[in-house]
């Protein structure tokens, strides 16, 4: 088999990571062992991970390009939009004379509440249309709903992360909010963030499967997101609520995550009200139901519309 007369050779058309395929490796592929870091692990586990990552990477770039357009203005808008929401609400609360229910800075308190809600809502709303709007891509055997949902969730989470970073730097530079106002117990904060990521992913998976069978799900989801703005403790904590509403708030996994995050982030704030297992369990249950639905759809004769 000669490749010489070919316009260009790419081996046998198999994705990189297969045997005998040399080429420049990206950093992440190096980290994942594409360069033989884990060569003694005689399995094809790492090549599979590398291949999956390559699909997710391509999907993320495609999604970003579709959603924000070719011009950088689109991407800037994606960042400015949530920032404006946060700033407007913060201005309103400052004029109302609200104090932070925990910690010294209203901004830190508010951002640790609103950004998780925005991230969760966007992941779930984007998840709803993930498969339906990309069904043509499922003609590529290497692209599965898993990759599409992971790509969309990662994109949403990275934008939220970027927004937080901009706030931290901006508030430090212009509002004299010190950087150590953002960290109290790093391990607790990181666990809470991990839990948030998992909850977002589980919700996006479930949302994507419901969105497949129920066309209007995306709209339902964005209404539901609005409800969560008022019930997730953006401007209050568990402790600052009377017993009645507090009992209701205990059923909101996002409220638990936010309280957990604040426990880790805000110096001097400790909370005994949240249960870290609750949002983790909800995330796991959402994920399990989503995967069950995917399996049921796969063995049925359902055809995506």
């Amino acid at each position: 088999m000669s490749l010489s007369s070919f316009p260009y050779g790419s081996g046998s058309g198999t994705p990189r990571g297969g045997p005998g395929n040399a080429g420049p490796l990206s950093l992440i592929e190096r980290l994942l062992g594409g360069d033989g870091l884990f060569r003694n692990l005689k399995t094809d586990f790492w090549p599979k991970v590398v291949r999956s990552w390559r699909v997710v990477e391509a999907m993320m770039l495609r999604e970003a390009l579709t959603r924000y357009g070719r011009r950088s203005a689109g991407f800037v808008w994606a960042i400015i939009n949530p920032m404006m929401l946060v700033i407007i609400m913060m201005v309103i609360f400052t004029y109302l004379g609200r104090q932070a229910a925990a910690g010294e800075y209203l901004s830190v308190f508010f951002i640790t509440g609103i950004i998780p809600v925005i991230a969760w809502r966007n992941a779930a709303v984007q998840g709803a249309g993930a498969i339906t709007s990309n069904r043509g891509l499922l003609n590529y055997p290497q692209i599965r709903p898993f990759h599409i949902v992971v790509a969309r969730t990662l994109l949403e989470l990275s934008i939220s992360g970027l927004v937080v970073l901009l706030f931290v730097v901006g508030l430090w530079a212009f509002m004299d909010v010190p950087l150590n106002a953002w960290v109290d117990e790093p391990f607790t904060a990181i666990s809470a963030l991990g839990c948030l990521v998992f909850l977002c992913y589980g919700s996006a998976v479930l949302s994507s499967q419901i969105g497949r069978v129920f066309q209007l799900w995306g709209q339902v989801m964005s209404r539901l997101g609005r409800v969560l703005f008022f019930t997730s403790g953006l401007w209050y904590t568990f402790a600052s609520l009377p017993t009645g509403p507090r009992a209701l708030m205990k059923y909101n996994p996002l409220a638990h995550t936010i309280e957990w995050l604040r426990d880790g982030v805000i110096p001097g704030f400790e909370s005994d009200f949240y249960n870290p297992w609750f949002p983790l369990w909800i995330g796991l249950i959402f994920l399990a139901i989503g995967l069950l639905m995917e399996w049921l759809i796969a063995i049925s004769t359902f055809v995506d519309e």
């Binding site: 790419s10 994705p15 390559r54 990477e57 770039l61 495609r62 390009l65 290497q142």
Partner: peptide, 18 residues
């Protein structure tokens, strides 16, 4: 919404070709 070239780039990334 994407151009022909951008759609092609996606496939290139998928199959890891130049």
């Amino acid at each position: 919404a994407l151009t022909g070239a951008e759609n092609l780039k996606f496939v290139c990334r998928l199959y890891d070709i130049d």
